[in-house]
Write a protein that binds this DNA or RNA. Structure first.
Lengths: 145, 145
DNA sequence: GTACCTGCAAAACCTTTGCAGCATC
DNA sequence: GATGCTGCAAAGGTTTTGCAGGTAC
């Protein structure tokens, strides 16, 4: 195994252990898969990966993911609710959002978004077309502290 | 009704009509709700709002949302798959992503993210704590053009 | 030995589709 | 009048939970 991956795996397992989780087979396998694929993965992706395929139950992986998020070793991307979010889109208008990771409340930010120039660079270098971006800030709102 | 909201509603309905959609009651009500709440809304939020409550079937709103997204009048936020995405989180490391809106493929970007300073400002002005951010670029990948 | 974790199974949710009837153009 | 929309109902997927047994500490 790649040395960097091994180092990260060691760190992750050590951290989880220190924070009260048990060193189980499922934990080692799941972390290894997550560290190896440096891309966002769905529960289904993870369960069907070579590392976990037929090794761990989906419910186990699901609960383990929740625990790992709680210990700060992995991160769950996007809005908290598993529902799709829609917003009115007026030409030339762009908004960024501030979302509470506890209660899910969403605020619209009125800031000057510094990503516009970056957007052009990404479009040029990636070959993607029709590019737009989304920027969200997450944290605990005052009411949830 | 607020003049700005009325203007936007007129623009949206006009645009939808020009692009081939029919002016239905559901369309007017849904757009009005979306324009009034300037925040991301879930299908459930929309169906339960005062404007739509018991007025339109959930399936109707769902299909209408899809049509409006197709006409560019509203936007669906986040990853395309309705599943949760997880990623390994190494201290001090941050990644941004480039996502294809057609096939859903996700690439990890290695760019200098210009949002760090903004993050501090948002933290200071909002009262939120433990703030982090996510930045995603969306577009059509070369294979989907 | 105790407390936590895992598997299997089932429930809970949200999204998505089929179909017949109705409204818009 | 033709085509697109709507409602009702049911299907598809993903996420969540209950419980009994197994495992890490």
């Amino acid at each position: 195994m790649d040395k960097e991956i091994q180092d990260r795996l060691d760190w992750a397992i050590q951290t989880c252990s220190e924070r009260g989780l048990r060193r189980t087979k499922a934990m080692r396998e799941l972390l290894k898969v997550l560290i190896t694929f440096q891309k966002p993965q769905t529960l289904a992706d993870l369960c069907e990966s070579d590392g976990l395929c037929n090794q761990c139950d989906r419910a186990t992986v699901f609960r383990l993911l929740g625990r790992l998020v709680g210990k700060g070793v992995i991160r769950k991307l996007g809005f908290q609710e598993r529902a799709a979010y829609y917003i009115f889109s007026y030409p030339g208008e762009h908004n960024d959002y501030l979302v509470c990771t506890d209660c899910g409340k969403i605020e619209t930010l009125s800031i000057k978004c510094p990503v516009e120039t970056l957007e052009k660079e990404v479009m040029a270098s990636s070959g993607f077309s029709g590019i737009y971006h989304e920027l969200e800030f997450f944290g605990q709102c005052p009411a949830c502290l």
